[in-house]
């Protein structure tokens, strides 16, 4: 396991079946780590795609996304009690979301 200091604070998942490719998240993302997929999803939309690194876990992409569950933002859970993110550590392993 790598040292938490060196890892991204956030992580982004996009449900490709729910995303309609409006691109609002791409525009809204402060670190600009979201792009559009080359491939179309089942409904014929290009979908939002996480660049794979650089997410701060700010959650802005989630709030600008018009779909209830197309985007899920995760934040790193610090094992020590000084993180102050207010994140509930119990919700983990959201592998039901199709990610890309």
């Amino acid at each position: 396991m790598r040292d938490a200091e060196k890892r991204d604070r956030g992580l982004l998942r996009v449900d490709v079946d729910e995303c309609k490719g409006c691109g609002l998240c791409v525009e809204a993302c402060p670190p600009k780590v979201i792009g559009m997929s080359e491939r179309l999803n089942h409904y014929g939309y290009r979908t939002a795609t996480y660049a794979g690194a650089g997410c701060t876990g700010c959650g802005i992409c989630f709030m600008v996304c018009p779909e209830p569950g197309a985007i899920t933002v995760l934040r790193i859970v610090h094992r020590n009690a000084d993180e102050g993110h207010g994140v509930e550590p119990a919700i983990v392993g959201a592998s039901e979301c199709a990610s890309n």
């Binding site: 709030m63 995760l74 859970v77 550590p89 990610s99």
Partner: peptide, 20 residues
Amino acid sequence: MSSEMASEYAVSHGKAKAFY
């Protein structure tokens, strides 16, 4: 992404329970 990695992240912004 590996499940090993994901296990260290927790959902901070996800679909609300008030939605079906």
